[in-house]
Design a protein around this nucleic acid. Structure first.
Lengths: 232, 232
DNA sequence: CGTTATCTTGAGCAGTGTCAAACTCAGTGG
DNA sequence: CCACTGAGTTTGACACTGCTCAAGATAACG
């Protein structure tokens, strides 16, 4: 995400070498209103943050991909308002030094800048979610969301050729998009008929990205220029 | 929001004494994708942050009340992804020292803690907005949102007796709740018929808060204990 | 006091949700 | 190796929430 000085790389290498914790699908990584013990990073697998109403209606706020952080915040005693649930087998590493580093930005400017970028994107995606749920139709939501996942996967070097694993059931997708399973299914069918996507065996291929971008009015968080700027 | 040391009060008094900038209703305080020049605080009036789709559908992300911050962030060059629009006549003060202070938390622990609290609440309300739009019915959304505004107004000593000015047209409320004007109107009528609210001359009275809390499943961001903790 | 925004109401319709059943398919156990 | 199982997907029929269009009623404002 950003160029780093040697001592910064050292910190990351340290974290990388640390033992990982492992969770199975549907395990709860973090509970609503529990205290967060220090940032963690997902090294593999997918998770999501969600909350549910008393009657069982559930809403996913955000999907967490490998490389994403859990509980990343400069605040002193961050508290989670959501549940973090594993969508697949997930491995995470603790990275307490990251919280410290962020506060002490002068010492690790590269890491601080990268964290800034992550926080900025998170805010952006959160707003995108509001936009989708508040004003877009089922078809638009799905198109927009697919492009967002594609963007994020590509940004970490996954998702070669606009095709990547999508380890979510239609039920789960429905929870993310604020729709019913049945309607998700119908919308998927439509996109398939139109030749815009292919989704089988848990793998999604975006066959007509321009059409999807247009349908969902997707805009990446950073204009191309700023991106080039941020990762020289 | 938090107890402060004397030198911290000094900073706030300095900011408070500074000349305010003034905007009229519908003025744009900040544009999408423009750089933020440093945090500002709203000293009077209401504003909102919103974005719109090409075809004119618009979604309000958040309503900004007096005392709320604009562009508050520890990130180095924060960038807004939304438009900030005045809903009424609005006055704001610049507070560049706040950004500095947040980074240098050891020097102003009280201010830092207060900012943490603000940021935490903002995150919480953003998630509440997602929950509303994704999973709640029109009636639930409105009940929940009314309670949220009430909570926020009360937290700043406005909103005596659960009655406060609501300087928004039904059109604007619709933009905030992801509904159409007509449906907002009908839902308001229903709440009035049921004796749960009164809304006239731009003033909202919550006549039956327990019912509204229950209908919207509203939960305040901080449990009572933590609040007492934060403002002794 | 006119003019224009805002609110209100009705009628009809579209997009999604619900319910229910059939189908697929990967895994499991015999 | 194959029937069985259960989660996940697909389809149909139907209901309902919320939207659109349109017109009339009120209230705000110069």
């Amino acid at each position: 995400l950003h160029e780093l000085a040697d001592h910064e790389r050292g910190v990351l290498r340290l974290i990388e070498g640390r033992p990982k914790r492992s969770y199975g699908a549907d395990d709860r990584l973090l509970s609503e209103r529990s205290e967060i013990h220090g940032p963690h990073f997902i090294t593999s697998g997918w998770a999501c943050s969600m909350r549910e109403l008393k009657d069982g209606r559930r809403q996913i706020f955000n999907v967490l991909l490998p490389g994403d952080a859990i509980g990343l915040s400069i605040r002193s005693k961050p508290r989670s308002f959501t549940n973090i649930i594993a969508l697949t087998t997930v491995r995470i590493v603790d990275a307490p030094e990251i919280a410290v580093a962020w506060r002490d930005r002068a010492r690790v400017p590269g890491i601080a800048a990268a964290l800034d970028l992550m926080a900025t994107e998170e805010e952006f995606f959160s707003q995108a979610q509001i936009m989708r749920l508040g004003r877009q139709t089922a078809y638009e939501r799905m198109a927009h969301w697919f492009m967002e996942i594609d963007y994020r996967m590509a940004a970490r070097g996954l998702g070669a050729g606009s095709s990547f694993p999508l380890p979510m059931t239609q039920e789960t997708i429905a929870s993310a998009l604020g729709l019913s399973v049945v309607h998700v299914n119908r919308t998927l069918q439509q996109m398939r008929r139109e030749g815009r996507i292919e989704l089988k065996h848990g793998r999604l291929s975006l066959l007509d990205k321009p059409a999807l971008v247009a349908a969902g009015e997707f805009t990446p968080p950073m204009p191309a220029a700023a991106m080039a700027d941020a990762r020289p």
